[in-house]
Every structure is written in structure tokens, then in C-alpha cells.
């Protein structure tokens, strides 16, 4: 161990320490806080459905949408066995789960009470009004698949 540290003089060790502390300060506290909060999910026995498409972030659509009066935002969440597609309409949130099947959907706002709804036979649903603030969706499909999205803000 002495061999390792002998090559490291005072200036080097101080500079390295400075960099280490700087790298830590570069990380916003909210980022770390969000990471800590993730632990609350440890007992949730559901597949994570991740955002795999967001129309507002699609530059190919940006131009064509700009010309339209009512642009529709589309989001896709994908877990290992389930896809949830969402479209933000004027006053409601329209969705469908794929593969098509009935499911129970829970809307879990971060700062509001949970809402629950049942899709139709082919997995279509409509949420009215549109959730305000951060929320996540948990979906129990008839096939037995249980998926949960990350936090969504519309």
C-alpha cells in the first residue's frame, strides 16, 4: 500500500480531493433526492414501464405539429410484457394498452388521491380530467402482468 501512495505527493492528493468534492457538488441535490426516494419502490412487485417515446421530443414531428392548431402529445411506456400508449387530448388523457386486453388502471398522483378505472375489452381507456402535476400509472392487465410507469408530468 505504501508503494501505491508514495507516488502521490501532497499537491496531487489535494488536487484529487478537490476534484472529488467538485464532482459531488456538480450533482444537483434534487437529483440525489429523487434517487433516495426510489427506495420506496422496493416492495412494489411490478414491472417498470419506461418512457420509450415522447412526441414533444421528436424533432421530426416538431415542424409538422407547429402548423396545427391542436397538437396532440403522444407518449409510449414499455415494460417487459406490456406497452402503454397515451395521447393528451383537449380535456382528457386517452390511452391503450398493448397487447389489447382489459386491465385495471390506477392513476397515482404524487400529491393527490389515487384514481382507479377499468379499460374496455381491448384495453382502451380515457382519464378525465387530465392529471395535474406528477403522477404515475399502474396497470394490472387481465393476462396477470402488473406494470408501473415512472413519474410522468404532462
Amino acid at each position: 500500500m505504501n508503494q501505491v501512495t508514495k507516488g502521490w505527493d501532497d499537491e496531487e492528493v489535494l488536487a484529487a480531493l478537490q476534484q472529488a468534492l467538485r464532482a459531488q457538488r456538480a450533482v444537483p441535490p434534487e437529483f440525489i433526492e429523487a434517487g433516495k426516494n426510489a427506495f420506496a419502490w422496493r416492495n412494489i412487485d411490478a414491472e417498470l414501464a419506461q418512457l420509450t417515446y415522447d412526441s414533444t421530443l421528436d424533432p421530426a414531428l416538431e415542424l409538422s405539429l407547429r402548423a396545427e392548431a391542436a397538437s396532440i402529445r403522444a407518449l409510449t411506456f414499455t415494460s417487459a410484457h406490456l406497452t402503454i400508449e397515451l395521447e393528451v387530448a383537449q380535456d382528457s388523457l386517452l390511452g391503450q394498452i398493448i397487447p389489447a386486453q382489459p386491465a385495471t388502471i390506477k392513476i397515482q398522483p404524487r400529491e393527490d388521491v389515487e384514481r382507479e378505472l377499468v379499460t374496455d375489452e381491448i384495453g382502451c381507456f380515457s382519464i378525465h380530467p387530465i392529471p395535474v402535476g406528477q403522477f404515475r400509472m399502474r396497470c394490472h392487465a387481465a393476462s396477470g402482468v402488473d406494470a408501473i410507469t415512472g413519474w410522468i408530468t404532462l
Binding site: 429523487a34 434517487g35 426510489a38 427506495f39 419502490w41 422496493r42 417498470l48 419506461q50 415512472g150
Partner: peptide, 11 residues
């Protein structure tokens, strides 16, 4: 990305 990474780690 952070959210996904931490959630995947929890899992």
C-alpha cells in the same frame, strides 16, 4: 435516466 437507473437498481 436517473429515475430509471435507481428504480432498476432497487429491483
Amino acid at each position: 435516466v436517473g429515475q430509471s437507473v435507481w428504480l432498476l437498481l432497487v429491483e
